[in-house]
């Protein structure tokens, strides 16, 4: 099993490395969002405060509006991690469908390689991309703080080893979860157009019912409540709470991680059932 998994994973990474256009565009998308969208929406709610309002009150408004973040950009940069987890995993399933169309998947299915190796290799390579991109996003957002004229990610809490671990766990779990979902859909479907139609029915509602991009203070109550169960929100809450402190979060990051783990466990379990059936040795 391990040799089969290693061989197929190697193949996936070789293909990834041989596709510089895809790497470039996967980096370009978050870069544009960080550079344009995040900067463009970097509204300071304190600017609406009445003249003479004490600075501590103004600061309190800002912190409450952005759940402890000192500005929208810092709040948004953490949300971008959730955003790239969705967008960077979209094509994983499409690649399976193209491999089916070109006979490459047929070749793999004609070998005794276990379905776990076939699925696992694509999952590892597929999840690696959003994980790496998430750290690229965070690094870039931190770097912007040193670029004149740009706002950057300002971390106001002490992260520590536990915090760093939580961040890594949140990113890994979220990436694995979305990679599993889109990979499973790709294995179950055979037509690219149908795949993208189905995927769009998932990624947009999931992204837009999370608090990844909206300022917390501007969200209506019903959306805030709904977003608390959203896996993207759960992961982003772990990051924000670690970056900006726990004052504006009802639960500690461990609880959000637990929620995210539950989502991942449930979806991976469903995926295993479906994929085992779809990739059984004899059709």
């Amino acid at each position: 099993m391990l040799r089969e998994l290693t061989a197929l994973t190697r193949r996936e990474f070789l293909k990834l490395a041989r596709n510089p256009q895809a790497i470039f565009t996967s980096l370009l998308l978050p870069l544009l969002y960080l550079l344009l969208f995040g900067q463009g929406f970097n509204i300071n709610p304190a600017s609406f405060a009445l003249p003479g309002t004490p600075p501590s009150v103004v600061q309190g408004i800002v912190l409450a509006y952005f759940r402890g973040a000192p500005n929208y950009y810092s709040y948004f940069a953490a949300g971008m991690v959730g955003f790239v987890a969705v967008t960077a995993t979209l094509f994983i399933g499409a690649n399976v469908i193209f491999d089916k169309l070109f006979g490459i998947f047929k070749r793999t299915r004609g070998t005794p390689a276990p379905s776990a190796a076939v699925f696992g290799s694509r999952l590892i390579a597929g999840a690696a991309q959003p994980i790496l991109l998430a750290f690229f996003v965070l690094g870039l957002a931190l770097l912007f703080a040193h670029v004149p004229g740009l706002t950057g990610l300002q971390i106001t809490a002490s992260i520590g080893v536990a915090g760093a671990t939580y961040i890594v766990l949140a990113i890994v779990l979220l990436s694995l979860m979305f990679a599993t979902v889109f990979l499973t859909i790709g294995i179950l479907l055979d037509v690219p157009q149908v795949y993208f139609a189905v995927v769009n029915l998932i990624n947009l509602p999931v992204l837009l019912t999370s608090d990844a991009l909206y300022p917390w203070g501007s969200m209506p109550t019903w959306l805030r409540n709904a977003s608390q169960f959203n896996p993207i929100s759960l992961a982003v809450n772990v990051l924000r709470e670690t970056f900006f402190g726990s004052s504006y979060y009802p639960y500690p990051p461990e609880i959000y991680l637990l929620g995210l783990f539950a989502w991942t466990a449930v979806l991976v379990s469903i995926a295993i059932l479906l994929v085992r059936r779809a990739l059984r040795p004899l059709e």
Partner: peptide
Amino acid sequence: ENLEVAAGTYGIAR
């Protein structure tokens, strides 16, 4: 690489 990957899918050592 095609051949090496194919060998791996049959559990053959690298």
